[in-house]
Structure formats: C-alpha cells, structure tokens
Write a protein that binds this DNA or RNA. Structure first.
Lengths: 165, 165
DNA sequence: GCACACTCTCTCGACGTCAAGACAGTCGAC
DNA sequence: GTCGACTGTCTTGACGTCGAGAGAGTGTGC
C-alpha cells in the first residue's frame, strides 16, 4: 500500500530529477511515523489523565527499580530533553504528588527524583495501556518482520546513543 | 551494538516480567530516532538560516511544482500540524518574503499559499544539505537494508496516511 | 430558493520546550 | 591547601504548538 512518503518521493523525482532522494524513503518515514505515534499516545494516555511527557519521566523512574529514583541528569539522557525542560517537568510532577525531590547525599550540587507510590501506580497502569495500543499498530507485521525492523533501527540509533551527541 | 532501547527493554523485563514489552523494540526506537533526527536537522538547517518548520512548509510547496502553490489545508496534511499552527507559520514566512497569500479564485473561503522566488531558492539549497546529512546517518546500512527498512516502515505508516485519522 | 450541515481559515489563551547563562559544588594538578 | 576547569541543576525570556471555537462561505436535499 502507498503512503504519504511514496507520494513525496515521487514528487521530488519529478521536480528535482537531478537529486538522489532515496534517503527520504527511510528517514521521512521515521519522522512522520513518530508524529503519528505522538498523537496516538496522547489519546491513549488521556484515559489515564497523563500527558506523554509525564509518562516519559514516570516510567524512566519506574524502570530504575526500587527505590525508584534517578538524578535529573540521568533523566535527561533517557528522555532527550534539555535541562531547563526537565527542571520544569519535575516541578510539575512534584506539584501533582507523583514524584518528590531529595538532596543527593553523595553530591551536594545534586538532587534525586523519587517516584511516590501514586506515581508508581500511574506508571504501571499507563504502560499497560500503551503496550496494548502499540500491539495494535504493529499488528501489520509478523513477528519475524518486527524483529527485523527492530534490528535495522538499532543500527541507526546506536551511534546517537553511544557516541555522546 | 547496544542502544538505549536495549537497556530500556532489559529494565522493563527485570521490573515487569509479567508484561510483554516487545512492541517497544520497534516503536520506542522510532520515537527516539525521530528526536535525534530533529536535533540533527536543526543543526544542518542553521547553516542556511532556516528552522525545520520553515523547511517543511517551503519544501511542501516546492514539491507541488510550478506555480508552487497549495492551500493551507493541503499543507496541513503534509506537515501533520494543526490549522492554528499553519496560519502562524504562513504569517511568519510571508513576513520574511518566502511565501505570499493569494485569494483562491474558485472558493472565496479559501487561500492559496505561493512560494516566492527566494523561497524556492532556499528550499532547493536546504534540501541538498539535508540529503547530504541523511546519507551520512544511513551510511550504517547497505542499499538492500535501506530498502528493506523503507518497506517495513511503509507498512506502519500507510494505515495512518490512508485511513483518515 | 432556502435551510442546514459541512468546510476552510483564522483567532485566542494556555502550555511546554529550548538556548543561554547563572550559580554552587567538586576534583585534579600543583 | 588552593586555584581553575568542570559538572549538575536551575532561572529566564522568547518562541512555536495545540485545542477550542468563531466566522465566512459552500452546496445538497427538499
């Protein structure tokens, strides 16, 4: 089945036959799919009264395991936002009682962000909802295709995630 | 090579062994990769004094072919933003002299957005820059792998692009 | 012809993000 | 010890996006 990127690529080949636009076949699909996923996630989370950004932070802490705490800096690398944004997010989550700030005992510049019990429950509930939705989206693909796709994507993400950039 | 999503999935399997988190292997990579690409694009465009959102609009018009004009509504579906955002974008691009608004002769509610000569030049220059950068990112993959990846992604994007939603 | 549902664009206010820089605390070289 | 470069977090102001809804215009069924 044709998608918007097929139309986009065909248009470029007509307008700029001198250029090789093959990279768009992969990377424009990644960008567009991510936007579609954002919208879908926003909808799925609204049932749990959570915003996507809240989910991102709460689940990062949940994944850390007991006692469910990370520094703001560690949260940055997991969520790919800037430090100012993370300060703001932590403020708002703390105001809602889903996380709390504690001084880092081993570094007085530092802070630890800890999930409250309610924050943990919300993280668990919304993860289940997200997985259900994602399974529906991936229903298009066989198990083997999903695994193939994951492996190819890993080759693209690994350099970003490992070389500090 | 391992990436951040491998670590994320391993953490979930440890913390929530009762859940099947396999969907994250694909979709978390898509979301994270898109964020990395956004950052890289922002950097690449800054050489041409363009923002990513400006690029998106100008190139949509450029692709339309002579006389390089589309309605705001057509631009919405191509760029995946809301109508309020598009009005704002067109305003700013018009103020910079890269596009102009014309009344739609066949529908008096409507408007046509047309690329100026300068807008067209900027679109052409920045596309070349973007493709160069994207080729570097995709250097990890063979031609066959890129084509495989594009085909798998198409299966995921096509439902979003074709079923209105 | 007329009413009514629909389409298209724009307006408005709230919100989240970013970039740049400030500030306190840390740590190695000497 | 102490100086200086570095690190981790927070502050600030500008900016772009969103959602909801308003207003003008269209066109179909009757």
């Amino acid at each position: 089945m044709e998608d918007e990127v097929d139309r986009l690529v065909a248009a470029w080949r007509r307008e700029r036959p001198d250029l090789d636009v093959e990279p768009l076949e992969v990377l424009s699909r990644v960008s567009r799919l991510a936007r579609h996923l954002d919208r879908a996630r926003r909808l799925a989370f609204s049932e749990h009264h959570l915003e996507p950004w809240e989910f991102d932070v709460l689940t990062a802490l949940r994944r850390a395991g007991s006692p469910y705490q990370l520094s703001p800096g560690q949260l940055l690398t997991q969520t790919l936002v800037t430090s100012g944004t993370m300060t703001n997010r932590i403020d708002r989550l703390a105001k809602k009682g889903l996380v709390e700030r504690l001084p880092d005992p081993s570094d007085r510049r530092g802070v630890l962000v800890r999930l409250t019990d309610e924050g943990r429950d919300r993280a668990d509930q919304s993860l289940a909802g997200l997985l259900e939705q994602e399974r529906a989206i991936l229903g298009e693909l066989s198990r083997a295709q999903r695994s193939e796709l994951a492996a190819l994507l890993r080759q693209l993400t690994a350099p970003f995630d490992n070389i500090p950039g």
